[in-house]
Design a protein around this nucleic acid. Structure first.
Length: 315
DNA sequence: AATCACGCCAACCGCGCGGAG
DNA sequence: CCTCCGCGCGGTTGGCGTGAT
């Protein structure tokens, strides 16, 4: 016997939120802070269930949320973290403070899953498109601070910046009162015309580059020869290899000699793919997988990736 | 111009967890 | 202990926009 749905009461409004409702909610939260969602509908007069209010706040109105296109760095982070953590969107979102779990989940389901699936091959030693739990090989690494980045009550900005909701309100009002000029493609900057007015100040609006780790740009544009095969790149980031190389575990399919060969081959591939990182990599004196992981998780990688995408035809 | 198919994403739904009584 | 309740998470859906025919 399950709990009755919270939203099945008569008079509870569903569907898209209006600017007026947003303002009511933001005003209330600005005054009282997020939390105690049960009392929000009654105290605000909103004809919404508490859950809907919470969702609207956390996914949309919460300050510090970045909307719009994901940068290559963010995409890389999501792919990497999804492989590490599985579909723990809240945990993944904790590594991307400006993105909501819902946003990341949507982006994964609509973009990244497809991209990875497209390139999934029998060579892959790990099903990257799998929705399964993270590879148990990675479980120890997956603790990569899941605890300290715990999804629950550890949303960056959630507690510290809600006070800046005045910013949101002003944006709400600004957009609400302004006429709504239609952009040629609202999705480039926001999801709806409404959002493009009062929320869609996407910091990523100028970023148009697409993810190309697994999908070279010229292929996206209609096909052509790949300068590097998917198998090659994936083999480097092969999770079994990463696991073996970085964390010293062995698998039945990988003895030490083949592991050494694979490691050397991966080093060569890495040097050819990322020549500008060769020096940095050799100086870092860390395993390749660690280097790649650090690179992916590096705050500054986004800009580096952007640079690399301009400089190198393979990105 | 009309219709259809598809992609995208905000919002909903159901379930599990943890705290309070 | 058990039950109730509030909350958060992950999966799914519905509506809208856009491109193709």
């Amino acid at each position: 016997m399950g709990r009755p749905p919270c939203c099945d009461k008569v008079g509870i409004k569903k569907g898209p939120w209006t600017p007026e409702e947003d303002i009511m909610l933001v005003s209330y939260i600005q005054e009282h802070g997020p939390g105690n969602w049960r009392s929000v509908p009654t105290n605000t007069g909103l004809s919404r269930c508490s859950k809907s209010c919470r969702l609207r706040w956390t996914n949309y109105l919460r300050p510090g949320i970045k909307r719009g296109n994901f940068t290559p760095h963010e995409e890389g982070m999501i792919i990497h973290l999804q492989a590490l953590l599985g579909n723990k969107w809240a945990a993944i979102a904790s590594y991307l403070p400006q993105r909501t779990d819902n946003d990341i989940k949507n982006y994964w389901n609509t973009h990244l899953k497809k991209k990875l699936k497209k390139f999934q091959t029998p060579f892959s030693s790990h099903n990257m498109t799998s929705d399964s739990a993270p590879s148990e090989h990675f479980e120890s690494r997956a603790s990569l601070d899941v605890s300290s980045h715990s999804s629950t009550n550890h949303r960056p900005n959630q507690t510290s910046t809600y006070a800046s909701s005045t910013e949101n309100i002003s944006r709400l009002l600004e957009g609400w009162m302004r006429s709504s000029p239609k952009t040629p493609d609202p999705r480039k900057t926001a999801t709806t015309g409404l959002e493009s007015n009062y929320i869609g100040n996407s910091a990523a609006a100028g970023t148009t580059s697409s993810f190309n780790y697994y999908q070279p740009k010229h292929e996206q544009d209609g096909g052509g020869d790949q300068l590097i095969s998917h198998e090659e790149f994936e083999s480097i980031l092969s999770f079994e290899n990463l696991n073996n190389i970085a964390w010293g575990k062995s698998s039945s399919s990988c003895d030490s000699s083949t592991l050494n060969q694979q490691t050397a081959a991966n080093e060569d591939k890495f040097n050819s793919i990322m020549p500008d990182k060769k020096q940095q990599r050799s100086e870092s004196n860390v395993p390749l997988a660690s280097f790649l992981e650090n690179w992916l998780l590096d705050e500054t990688t986004g800009a580096q990736v952007d640079d690399m995408m301009e400089m190198s035809p393979i990105f």
